[in-house]
């Protein structure tokens, strides 16, 4: 039997539960009609001002971008860690070079202030 098949079972059970619960809620907790402001987005009791889908700082975009790059680096570490004992000192040196180059990038990103939140 494929060892990944039970993961599918788990996924199906979890999804079925979530869907069933949401369907039940839809059925039992049907919203009752009310004035329009009952359905207005909550802004601490004040009438909503402006659009809710406004622009947001590019900072978040930068973090996501840096995350992808470092995430790829982390992913590379896993196959290396698995065969590390066979590679020995050689493995140590090659990963030191890899991480050394990326460390330069990390320091650059830090120095340039991309990790600051203000």
């Amino acid at each position: 039997m494929n060892p990944y098949l039970p993961i599918l079972f788990m996924l199906v059970i979890a999804t079925a539960f979530a869907l069933a619960a949401m369907a039940l809620a839809l059925f039992v907790g049907r919203p009752r009609p009310g004035p329009e402001r009952k359905f207005a987005p909550y802004e601490c009791g004040i009438e909503p001002v402006g659009s809710a889908r406004d622009r947001f700082p590019v900072k978040f975009y930068l973090v996501a971008m840096l995350f992808i790059l470092f995430d790829i680096e982390v992913i590379f570490l896993y196959p290396w860690a698995v065969v590390f004992r066979q590679l020995g000192v050689f493995g140590l040196i090659e990963m030191a070079i890899f991480l050394g180059i990326l460390l330069v990038g990390y320091i650059y990103v830090w120095r340039v202030g991309a990790l600051e939140w203000q």
Binding site: V58, L62, I72, F98, V104, V112
Partner: peptide, 18 residues
Amino acid sequence: EITSLVLLAAMAGAVVLA
């Protein structure tokens, strides 16, 4: 090992773009 250089360039690119 070259991949690390590509990632390095991408880091600089991300900062410059932002």
